[in-house]
Design a protein around this nucleic acid. Sequence first.
DNA 1: ACCTGTCAAGTCTGG
DNA 2: CCAGACTTGACAGGT
Length: 322
Amino acid sequence: MIVRFGYVAMSTIVEKASPSRTMTVTSFNKLQDREAGLRKLERLAAENLHNSLRLLKHNRAHDIVVFRFSSKLIPLIGHESVEGWNPMPVLADDFKAVGDYVKQHQMRVSFHPDHFTVLSTPRESVLQSSIGDIERHTAMLEAMGLNTDAKSNIHIGGAYGDKVTASKRFVEHFALLRPEVRARLTLENDDKTFTALETLEVCEQVGVPMVLDIHHDEVNLSEQTSVELWPRILKTWEQDAPLPPKIHVSSPKNETNPRSHADYVDPVGLLAFMRGIAPFTPHLDVMIEAKMKDSALIQLVQDLINETDVEQIDEASISIKT
DNA sequence: ACCTGTCAAGTCTGG
DNA sequence: CCAGACTTGACAGGT
């Protein structure tokens, strides 16, 4: 099994390269000249895109081809204070430059709209802002000129006291999305509410790939283990072949905060999972969610190649012998 | 240069 | 009905 590793949004190695510079709503609203404020937001967005491209170049130097963009590339977008503002035309060249680099080096990129995007909600206003958020993430991937291999990953959402009803509502609301938007979504099990099995069942119903988070799975257990579920999870990726299935990995910060992310990734649990699925999984992409970002990625690969059944391919990928 | 309180959004719990 | 926790990088305002 060939395994490629990626990390999220920002680097702990490259300095002064934040992809999520912003402005508070309070300071935006304090400005007497709204248009000047919008131009400032556009400059911040361009800077965030420029820094994202710098990170991709850094990734290339370290053989890292899997990467998640920050969901805060365009500051304040979606907030009522900037209603009517469309920065996409002025940012078109910057988005295209990022997308061109991704395509040139055959990278796999994604977004992860944050937890305010909740399709299981019973509230119409929350649904509308969630759909708007997903639409904007789709628009950014389209502005990069990327095909539907570039996806946004979301969670099912809240349970509202009744998970079965909530997941049914998710399925109904999912059907409201445009087909082009649906084709760019993946669903991930969360750490509190929807387990891997429950998420998988929704994935099968709506026909989207499932991103398995093995840390979430450990703190929010399914009736079956992640390795037992894996054949079904693999099936959800078949429609996107040859795009490899993707998982998330992180380690608990400590015993009192088992759900929080630690600085680095403990290789033990990940190794056990990978060995379990390697015999029937040719390719796997692993997104590392650790505080130390790309440093944690490099450290994890170093830790893994000490194992006798692991071979290093390059700085950010390995193969596991079966 | 460095420190600290605050910050758009949603959900859940507890009062 | 409302406040606080959750969680996290970055701002804003201060020294």
